[in-house]
Design a protein around this nucleic acid. Sequence first.
DNA 1: CCGACCTTGTTCTCTTGTTCACAAAGTGCC
DNA 2: GGCACTTTGTGAACAAGAGAACAAGGTCGG
Lengths: 230, 230
Amino acid sequence: MERQRRIPEATVARLPVYLRTLLDVQADGVTTISSERLAELAGVNAAKVRKDLSYLGSFGTRGVGYDVDHLLVQMSRELGLTRDWPVAIVGVGNLGAALANYGGFGDRGFPVAALIDADPTKVGTIFGGHTIRHLDDLPALVDELGIAIGIIATPAVGAQEVADRLVAAGVKSILNFAPAVVTVPEQATLRKVDLALELQVLSFYGQRDSIGLALREELGVAAAAKNSGA
Amino acid sequence: MERQRRIPEATVARLPVYLRTLLDVQADGVTTISSERLAELAGVNAAKVRKDLSYLGSFGTRGVGYDVDHLLVQMSRELGLTRDWPVAIVGVGNLGAALANYGGFGDRGFPVAALIDADPTKVGTIFGGHTIRHLDDLPALVDELGIAIGIIATPAVGAQEVADRLVAAGVKSILNFAPAVVTVPEQATLRKVDLALELQVLSFYGQRDSIGLALREELGVAAAAKNSGA
DNA sequence: CCGACCTTGTTCTCTTGTTCACAAAGTGCC
DNA sequence: GGCACTTTGTGAACAAGAGAACAAGGTCGG
């Protein structure tokens, strides 16, 4: 009974949200949950939840709902969370240091295995229990420590080179925090976290609001008259 | 000549990328740029660039390209970057502290105006030039400092309450770093930065790779045979 | 002043993602 | 065991976004 193993990208991005939600309710002793309830807690539409979960393979029971434990097992397996994914943080500046200290990593299968920098004055120093290694050591580190994910926390200017080196060393999953456009070959996966972008998007929608409600109602001229006339 | 002022969400999210790219080329002395070149630098499709820019109002010149300076002005205006958007960081723990120290904020119109925490032992202490204020002072701070954007950097458990309080105090733009589902009323805008989610998505695609190329070609059984037989 | 060339702006088509609506399937009361 | 009730899984309609293709419009050399 081979399932259609094609999980849409949008669904993949929601699975972690369901996972987190399920862990929460599991901690509260809940053993069964309906798509309706899960949707409410995850902040999405119930139909979407059902369709998303159906990609994992019909684990619900009609008339009852989903077994929380079972769903968690299946979801963890699908997301690849049954193993550890050692992470290397490249760039131990402000951001990199914060990430290294941030507990949230090791918690659930993403141990920080290496800190890497290109600055000779930083290399060799110890930070958060790790000796900072040089970028040139990357291939060796990947072999030794099984680095599976690279986090780019360098300034924008070095980001693409770091990405290239990570890929060359065999790291196929990259998370980019640098405010720069980075591209990777198709065989690799790149995700980005872009603070400036998020703030600017907020700025855009915030401005829309502060211009005044009238303008949003596309009464351009009327709104201007009202404002200057008041 | 009133333009259709309806900019798609996906476009809004790309404008900051174009903006950054344009600033880069402007610094190199480039005065004119084609959609082709801009697309290459921004890592997107040229047709998409043209369509996105057309929402701003046809500022290109056929046969030539776009005037970099002019485009930057229009884009900044559209994104609301002609004014400052004072930011309040709520939650001065590991992450909040890192964000407060991170220079990238004040740079371009998003000055950190206040640090806020609910922990009485932190309130009153000075961090990075700011006296940490109590969450209860939020309404006053919004009035005094014109806080326009709230950044949630608390543990998951407090996130929703902080969001509610921000909205109640009149802050309509929120950026959530807490690993929790947070919802806001329609009048407000919420964006999220979710580290765990990004890592888990990488894990998903990483696992797909390590299972073996053959499996990806949906030859389920054949792939298993090949692997065990080799 | 004309024609070859270039690049934008936009239309059309295709793909992806969302939502509705309902049949299928299971539960539990009586 | 049957019936009313609940909830899933999915087909189909709908919306949003991506990309190809091309006409319109403008430049520049001669």
